[in-house]
Amino acid sequence: MGTCDANLKPEGTRAVGAVVAPDRARITVFLNEANSERTLANLAVNPRAAICFTRPIDHRTVQVKGRVLTVRRTLDSEKPRLDRYLSAFVEALYLVGVTRATGGRIAYWPSMAVEITVEDLFHATPGPGAGGRLS
């Protein structure tokens, strides 16, 4: 997730999960609390966020741009969902050569949930079409 402070200094942090709302107009992105302090500080002064999703095996990538609606602590009841997300991510990394033991060390709990309203979607797969709007 990319954010930017009031002085236009950007910052990125790796998200550890995401859930698309049933209305498909909002996404909740989960951040590892231990390394998202600056991202959350940025969002407090500038609600704009960019989130990049990629599939490691073929680099299929999309970027979502939007504004933050809410920031809250992730509920214990949401943890199983994050567990599944991370397990799937570890398998995706395994396919590109990262061992499961290594992938399994990605820290993700406790976590913060950042709800974003989606304003724009872009192709971000490497290549000449990257940056184009997704219809």
Partner: peptide
């Protein structure tokens, strides 16, 4: 370049952009 790096930038209006680097 094994695990792609990410790069975050921002335009003059404060709209961030984040993408992967080879």
């Amino acid at each position: 370049g094994v695990v792609p790096s990410t790069i975050a930038t921002a335009d003059c209006k404060g709209i961030p952009n984040i993408t992967y680097l080879s």
